[in-house]
């Protein structure tokens, strides 16, 4: 998440300013401003910060009013917090197979859907990009909300559009102390807010127990948004850097005989990770990073065990 344009001094100054305001939490000005910038970055109406990735996932599921008896489609290789969140609300996760980019195979969605399916989560695993137009077509056809899970929402693109644009809700899992951010449109933000907050409805000025929010209370403090706002301003620079790093590392890997797993046609990876086929080159594994994903089906396990990921961060 760090870039050359990142200055700890500037950040420290901003943190001190936040401290001085005496408002350290409960949706203060820093989180509101960071939410506005984040939504604007993705061309959406509104965003909401959550205290953790898992908390953000639970908030979405609550806002969609899911519980026991419902099913949610997840990629067979995904961040474990997604599965935990689905199970936490009492719903059943149904895993859709992935391809070698470790992202969901859109063609397999049809096998996963039942009359209990209530939502589809896709995940841009390790910065690799799903076939968003196909997944979108499927969810539209069946009137299912699509949630795009990504750690680089400003960088994963398909057909020159951010993957965020294909989805009803974006769940950005940021590496800043586990922060989750939900991005969506005016239509849905009120519901997300009510599931996120304990107190007042969206836009309400004050008062306790107004009675309309059930509230998982996933609000964040005012210090993390300070960092996030600062990183947003450095997003373009960061993208350029990681793209050039990706090219350099890819070339080096190719020279060493590695077989790179290409991004899907039409997709633009965030470049955070480079996936290679292991194909017997066990030495590659030494330099590989621990992949923060888990496989939930046999084919998912095979795909995951055949891949080695290198970070460009």
């Amino acid at each position: 998440m760090r870039s050359a344009s990142f200055s700890q001094d500037v950040l420290n100054q901003k943190i001190k300013e936040t401290l001085d305001k005496h408002v350290w939490g409960t949706v203060g000005p820093e989180s509101k401003e960071a939410a506005r910038s984040f939504a604007a970055l993705l061309g959406r109406d509104a965003a909401l910060f959550c205290s953790s990735h898992a908390g953000a996932a639970e908030t979405v599921l609550r806002a969609l009013e899911l519980c026991h008896g419902d099913e949610v489609i997840l990629p067979a290789v995904c961040s474990p917090f997604l599965k935990e969140a689905v199970e936490a609300v009492g719903a059943k996760p149904v895993f859709c197979e992935v391809d070698e980019t470790l992202t969901m195979r859109a063609e397999n969605l049809a096998f996963c859907r039942t009359d209990k399916t209530q939502a589809v989560f896709c995940e841009q695993s390790l910065g690799y990009v799903c076939n968003m137009p196909e997944i979108r077509r499927f969810t539209k056809e069946h009137d299912l909300p699509l949630i795009d899970v990504t750690s680089s929402p400003y960088a994963t693109r398909f057909d020159d559009k951010p993957t965020a644009e294909y989805a009803d809700i974006v769940l950005a899992a940021l590496p800043v102390q586990n922060t989750g951010v939900l991005v969506t449109d005016e239509e849905f933000i009120g519901k997300l807010y009510a599931a996120h907050h304990c107190g007042n409805p969206y836009g309400h000025p004050g008062g306790l127990n107004t009675g309309v929010c059930l509230g998982g209370d996933m609000r964040i403090d005012e210090f993390r948004p300070t960092i996030i706002r600062y990183l947003i301003t450095a997003a373009d620079e960061r993208r350029r850097q990681s793209n050039s790093l990706r090219i350099r590392i890819s070339e080096a890997l190719l020279q060493n005989g590695a077989e790179l797993i290409p991004v899907r046609e039409g997709a633009d990876s965030s470049g955070e990770y480079i996936l290679c086929r292991t194909s017997g080159k066990e030495s590659c594994r030494d330099k590989a990073i621990r992949i923060p994903l888990r496989a939930y089906t046999e084919q998912g396990r095979i795909a995951l065990s055949n891949a080695v990921a290198y970070t460009t961060l």
Binding site: H53, G55, P80, F81, E84, Q177, D221
Partner: peptide, 17 residues
């Protein structure tokens, strides 16, 4: 530790504060 359920440990900045 976030291995089960949807909880998460408190971040370092907040812990320090």
């Amino acid at each position: 530790l976030g291995e089960k359920g949807t909880g998460a440990p408190l971040g370092e900045m907040q812990s320090a504060l």
